[in-house]
Computed example of a mutant assay.
Amino acid sequence: MKFKRHVLPEDKAKPTSEELQKNLIALIDLSLTLKQAHWNVVGKNFRSIHLQLDEIILTTRDASDEVAERIVMIGFSPDGRSSTVAKETPLKSYDTGFVSVDGTIQAVADALQTTIGELREGIEKLDDLDLVSQDMLIAVSSALEKHLWMIQAQEL
Rank of each mutant, 00 (worst) to 15 (best):
L131M: 13
A86M: 11
G117D: 05
L51I: 13
V101D: 01
M136W: 03
P78Q: 04
S31C: 10
Q106F: 03
L51D: 12
Y94L: 10
A86Y: 09
T33H: 11
D62F: 06
L91G: 02
G75T: 11
G80C: 06
G75V: 12
E66A: 14
R120Y: 05
A63Y: 06
V132F: 12
S83T: 15
T114D: 06
F98R: 12
I49N: 00
V108L: 00
A109M: 00
L34W: 02
L131W: 06
D128W: 00
G80M: 04
R47L: 15
A109T: 15
I49F: 07
I49Y: 04
D95P: 14
S93T: 13
F76E: 13
H50C: 06
Q36G: 00
V140D: 03
T114K: 08
G103L: 00
H38I: 06
R120G: 02
G97D: 04
I71D: 07
D102V: 05
G75F: 10
L32F: 15
K87W: 04
H38P: 06
F76K: 11
D102A: 09
I138C: 01
E55R: 09
G122N: 09
D29E: 13
V41Q: 04
E69G: 09
A68Q: 08
L32Y: 13
I123G: 01
D79V: 11
T89M: 06
L58W: 14
F98K: 15
G103H: 00
W39Y: 11
L91V: 03
H38T: 04
E118A: 13
L30E: 03
I49M: 08
L126T: 04
N45L: 14
S83H: 08
T84L: 09
L119C: 05
A139H: 06
G122A: 11
I138A: 01
S93Q: 13
V132N: 10
V108R: 01
